[in-house]
Design a protein around this nucleic acid. Sequence first.
RNA 1: GUCGCAGUAGCUCAGCUGGAUAGAGCAACGGUCUUCUAAACCGUAGGUCAGGCGUUCGAAUCGCCUCUGCGACACCA
Length: 567
Amino acid sequence: MYKIMNYKLLVATEVAKAVDNILSEEDIYKKIERPKSSDMGDLAFPAFMLSKSLKKAPQEIAGELINKIDTSKFEKVEAVGPYVNFFLDKNSFSSEVITNVLKEENNYGNNSDGENGNVTIDMSSPNIAKPMSMGHLRSTVIGNSIAKILEKNGYNPIKDNHLGDWGTQFGKLITAYLKWGNEEDVRRDPIHYLVEYYVKFHKLDKEQPELDDEARDWFKKLENGNEEAVRLWKWFREVSLEAFNETYKTLGVDFDTYNGEAFYNDKLQEVVDILKDDNLLVESRGAQVVNLDEYDLNPALILKSDGASLYITRDIAAALYRDRTYKPVKNLYVVGSEQTYYFNQLKKVLEKMNLDSAKGVEHVPFGLITVDGKKLSTRSGRIILLNDVLNESIDLAKKQIDEKNPELPNKDEVAKEVGVGAIIFGDLKSERINNIDFVLEDQLKFEGETGPYVQYARVRAESILKKGHADKYNFSDVSLDNKQSWATIKLIQSFPDIVKEASENLEPSVIAKYSLRLAKAFNKYYANERILDDNDELESRLALVKSVSIILKESLRLLGVKSPDEM
RNA sequence: GUCGCAGUAGCUCAGCUGGAUAGAGCAACGGUCUUCUAAACCGUAGGUCAGGCGUUCGAAUCGCCUCUGCGACACCA
C-alpha cells in the first residue's frame, strides 16, 4: 500500500534532534498542534515545556530552535512568540496527498484497526404494530453510520434490529382486532389500523375491565402456542415489518438480523439456570434479582414476583446468544441516553456471569427528542411520525429542483436522495448526546450546514469533471502550489485521522462536521479559482476536484447519505 | 433526595482531550450570476464561554462547590 508521509512525525523528529533529546520524540509528537490560521504555518511546536528545564523564556527558546532545526525539508520554519511554526512544502505535499487519494479512491482512509473483529450493533428496534417515530430515526441512523464507520476501520459490523415483537400488548391487540378489526384494512395500512385498535382498546378498558381479562387470556394463549393467537401474532409482525421495511428502504438502511424479543423466548430459562448455577440469583421482595450493591447499583430484576421475565432477561439472553454466535469484540447498544442506568446494570450482570464479550458491551447513548421541551409518547398523542417528516422533506426537495434545475432527468430519485439526506445529515451532524427539541422547519433546511450543502458541493465538483473531460487524464503529475487550494488539500490529508476519530468515539458527527469543512473549503476554492482555465495546472486542479468528489461521496456514504451526481 | 448528562452570539451548534486575537450556520443588514449549477461566495453586526474557587507558565477545555434545564432511580421497555 502507498504509504503517506507522516508530517507530524517529521516535525517531531526534527525538533527532537534540535533539542538534543531533552524531550523524547513521542512527547514532542503529542504536543505538536495545528495553528488556527494558516499564516501561522501548518504545524506548530509550542516551546513552553522546554522553558523549565532550559530556564529560559519560551520565546527565546523558539528563537534559538529555528537556527538548530534542519529546515531543508520544509518550505519555511519561523518563530512567532513562544511557537515554532512549520510551513510544509506545498508542492510535494499536495502531489503526494492527491496522488494517494486518486489511487485509493473510496478506500482512501481505510485502516485495519478492527482486525476483522465482529461488532454486534443493537439498533433501531421499533415496536410491532406501532409507527416509527423520530426517536427510532436516531437509533437507526446512528447505528447505521457507526456500522459503516467501523467497517472502514477494519471491523465486521453485524446490525441487529432488536424488534419489540413480544409482550402483553399483543394480548390487547389480538382482543381488539377480533372485536373491531377488519382484515382488509390491516392489509391496506397495517400500522394505522393496528394503532387504531390499540388506542380504542385503551379508551374502553377503563370502563370495561373485562377487556383486560380477555387480553391477558389471549397473551397467555399466545405464550402457550395457541394456533389462532400465534397466527395473528405472526401476521401482525409480518405486515408491520413490511411497513418498516418500506421506511428502511427510504432511509437506505438494512440489517443483518431481525432477532426481536420473541426470538429469545425459548432462551430465557437457560439464563435463569445459569444465574442460579453461578449463585448470582437471590430472592428479594418476592422477585428474583442479581445483587449489584458492590457497584452502587440497584439490583437487576430477572424474574418478577409472579415469575414472569423482564426486559433484562431477554437482553441477557441476547448477549449470551451474540457471545456464542459471533464472539464479538464489541457489543453495542444504540439506545437513548435515558437508559444509561439500565445498561450499567446489564453490563455488570454480564460481567458477573463472566461472559467473554461482557467487556465489549457498550451503551452508545443519544439525546432525547422532545417537542416543546416535552418527551414524546404514543399515549399522549405527542408523536412525530417519521414517514411524515421524510415525505415532507422529499416534497420540499422536489420543489427546489423544479425551481432551480427543472431540466434534471431523474427528479424524483434525486428529490428523495436530497430530502432524506437532509433529515439523516441533520440528525448526525451534532454530537449524538445532545437533546433535540423537534421543530419541523429546522429539519427542512437545505442551506448552510446541511446535507444538501455537502451534496451540492460534490455536484459542482462532478459537473466540472464532466465539462473538463477529467476521465481522459491519468493524473500522473500533480503539482499544486497555490494558496487557494491549500486549505482543501490539508483537509483531504486529514481524512484518515477523521475516520479513526469517528470510530474511536463511535461518533458519526465527526464525519459530518468534517464533510462540512471540506465542502466549505471546496466551495471557497470554486468561487475564487477558475478551475477549467486551460493552463499548466489544469490537470492538477482537476485532480484536486476529483479527490474532493471522492471524499465527499465517501463521507456521505459513511453517514448513510446518498450523493447524487446532479441536483 | 441520590446519580447521570448538559449550560459557549438572538436561535442551533463547533472548539482537534490544556495553548496563539473564542469560531461556524441560521436569523438581520449590505454586496456578488453575459464566464465551471447563486442549494453558492464575500462583507457588517453580534460574547461576563451559567457563576465562583482551585490546579497550571497558560483553562471554554481539568478538579471542587453553587445555580439552571433534562433524564434515570427494581416488578415498563
